[in-house]
Structure formats: structure tokens, C-alpha cells
Computed example of a mutant assay.
Amino acid sequence: MRVRAPGGLERLLRAEQADPGAPGPGEIRVALHGSSLNYHDLAVVNGWMPTADGRIPLADGAGLVESVGPDVTEFAAGDAVVSCFFPDWQTGEPVIGDFSRTPGDGIDGFAREHVVLPATAFTHAPRGYDAVEAATITTAGLTAWRALVVDGQLKAGDTVLLLGTGGVSIWALQIAKLMGATIAITSSSGEKLERAKDLGADFLVNYREEREWGRAVLDWTGGRGVDHVVEVGGPGTLGQSITAVRLGGHISMIGVLTGGAGEVPTAALMAKQARLKGIIVGSRSHQQDFIRALDSAGIKPVVDRRFPLEQLADAFAYEMSAAHFGKIGVEW
């Protein structure tokens, strides 16, 4: 699949692709079988984040290794693998602050049948995951893991506030519950809140009914505030997230669903002496750590619905409806 400039679901077209051939030194050939949708993918396909004409979309990709090139020892034919959001960020501190090397944006993504790429652009997939399940960790799952565990240093007994019930927030719910945290979550849907409760959420807030939801969460903690906020909204929700966080707490800024720019209530943030940190997904070593945790825990991601690749435009339309809970899968 390719998206033609200037973007739009009607400009997402099937296209023939030349076979990528055999892998060279340090490379692997992967037969792709699944992906999952992210807001970032939607923004690229719709032209909200311009990319090259004819770009192959989708940042997440998972499948099976068909063959390996010389010098590759980490993988073998038949291994289940999953892609990395930042294929050049292997470990350590961030090395990139844009999407120039992100599949489906700055470079071609995974809405295709085969790829030949450096072995370091993939990790092993979690044991027992199918391709769609594995693909959910590349962007959404790893973002939640980094926000809570890598940067947040989440521990048992902590309290966590999650905004909404999209892919990152539901992954964060599962991770936080796995780590022994107590969780508050917001949504405009009572049905989605009940589903979150079934996954372990402890305090439910309908933000359409409770406009001052930050204060409601603060009251729920007895006035102490939550230890962690996974902030996916951006400027339209940040003020209430600051209200909800405890003194010295941690806010991970990972989304801009309410806009890319806006006022920051700096006085309130200073008074809370909270850490506000922007993050974009994570490194390959973060992903490997996350996968080890998943192999140990045995949890599976929440996949709301699956679409065949030829119905990719329909999958994005479903994402735009905001009817989904957790992740939307694409498989072939």
C-alpha cells in the first residue's frame, strides 16, 4: 500500500512492489503478516504530517524471518520478529528528535509483504504472540513501558492516571496492573470505562460528566495526588493532569490529541514540583526489556478489531471514529 500526496484515505492505494531480494551482510529478510494503527500513522496518511509522495505507511510491522545475511547471529529463519520505531536508536539516551527515520513516515513502513532491512531494525517478538499482537508493542506498548517503567520507575503501590482508552493507555493499564499499581482512568464512554475496570482499573472518571476530572482524581487519592500521569491529550488536558499529580510526581507527555501547542500552567507545575517529560517511544534495548517482561508475565495486548491489509483505508476510518478500545490490527 502507498499513500499519494497530499494524503487522505481516498489516496491510500494498492501498488505492486519489486521483490526486495536476498539479505546482505547484517540484514534479514522478513515476511510481514501484521501491523497495528497509531495516531501517528493516521496523521501521515491524512497528510497532517506530510511525507514523501508514494510513501508506504505503517510504523509497526511483525512477521517471520525468511532468511538472514552474512554475519547475522541474533536471528534465524523461522523466528518471529517485530520492528523498532527508531531503527537507529539502539540503546542509551535518545539519538533522534524527529521522524526522519521512522518507518511509515521518514522512510517506507510495513504495509507490504516483504522487507529486507538491517537485523538491528527488529527484535524477537514476545513468545506466543501472533503478528498483530506483536506489532502493538512497537509504538503504543513501548511508549507506555518507557513512560511508566523506564522513565517513571514505577513500583508496586504507586498510583497512575491514564487518559482515555486508546492503544497507549490500555497498554499502560496492563503494565501498571502487572507492576502492582493502583489505576485511575478517564473516558467519555461508560461502556469503555467498564471494560477498563475489567482489566483492573480502580477508579473510573467520565470526563464528560465530570468536567473537573483532575480534581476528582486528586480527591480519590485523599488529596495526595497520583504518582504518575500518562498524558496523551496535550495542551487541552495538561492543566488537569497537573491538578491530579502529587507533589514531586511524574507526568509523561506523549500525545497531542488536543493540539500541538498551547499554554502550560507553569505556576501550577512549579507548585507541584512535578517532572514533566516529553517522550517519543523508546530504543531497541527498551523494547527488548519490555519483551522480556511480557514473556515472563504472559499478558496479551487488547486488540479491538482486525482488518485485512486491502481494507487499510477502512481501518483508518474506524480509528477516526474513536470507537475502538485498545489497538486496531491489520493482518495479511
Score class of each variant (00 low, 15 high):
residue 153 Q to Y: 02
residue 169 S to T: 08
residue 121 A to E: 05
residue 85 F to V: 03
residue 121 A to N: 10
residue 254 I to R: 03
residue 325 F to E: 03
residue 257 L to T: 14
residue 24 G to F: 02
residue 55 R to I: 15
residue 230 V to F: 12
residue 283 S to T: 09
residue 225 G to W: 10
residue 256 V to L: 11
residue 119 A to G: 07
residue 306 R to W: 00
residue 318 Y to D: 03
residue 150 V to M: 00
residue 75 F to C: 02
residue 324 H to N: 07
residue 294 L to T: 01
residue 135 A to C: 03
residue 226 V to Y: 07
residue 260 G to E: 12
residue 32 L to W: 04
residue 318 Y to L: 12
residue 12 L to E: 00
residue 264 V to R: 07
residue 57 P to G: 02
residue 103 P to D: 11
residue 34 G to V: 05
residue 241 S to R: 14
residue 322 A to T: 08
residue 22 A to N: 12
residue 173 L to D: 01
residue 52 A to E: 15
residue 267 A to F: 11
residue 311 Q to E: 15
residue 111 A to W: 00
residue 94 P to L: 11
residue 7 G to E: 10
residue 255 G to T: 07
residue 189 S to G: 11
residue 184 A to G: 03
residue 22 A to V: 15
residue 315 A to F: 02
residue 37 L to V: 04
residue 272 K to H: 14
residue 203 F to Y: 12
residue 104 G to T: 10
residue 93 E to V: 09
residue 38 N to Y: 06
residue 202 D to H: 10
residue 217 V to A: 09
residue 39 Y to F: 14
residue 330 V to C: 00
residue 266 T to N: 03
residue 305 R to D: 06
residue 239 G to Q: 12
residue 213 W to Q: 03
residue 22 A to S: 12
residue 136 T to A: 05
residue 320 M to L: 15
residue 248 G to W: 12
residue 131 A to H: 15
residue 212 E to Y: 10
residue 313 A to H: 05
residue 278 G to F: 08
residue 260 G to H: 11
residue 5 A to H: 00
residue 271 A to G: 11
residue 7 G to L: 08
residue 241 S to K: 08
residue 251 I to N: 09
residue 244 A to S: 11
residue 308 P to F: 00
residue 208 R to A: 00
residue 320 M to A: 15
residue 175 I to V: 06
residue 258 T to Q: 02
residue 163 L to D: 01
residue 266 T to E: 12
residue 308 P to D: 00
residue 56 I to P: 02
residue 166 G to S: 08
residue 242 I to W: 01
residue 178 L to G: 05
residue 192 K to Y: 06
residue 267 A to M: 13
residue 155 K to H: 10
residue 267 A to W: 05
residue 283 S to H: 04
residue 292 R to Q: 13
residue 54 G to D: 10
residue 164 G to Q: 10
residue 121 A to S: 14
residue 91 T to W: 13
residue 249 G to T: 11
residue 328 I to S: 06
residue 10 E to G: 12
residue 137 I to H: 06
residue 275 R to P: 01
residue 217 V to I: 10
residue 62 A to G: 05
residue 249 G to Q: 07
residue 38 N to W: 05
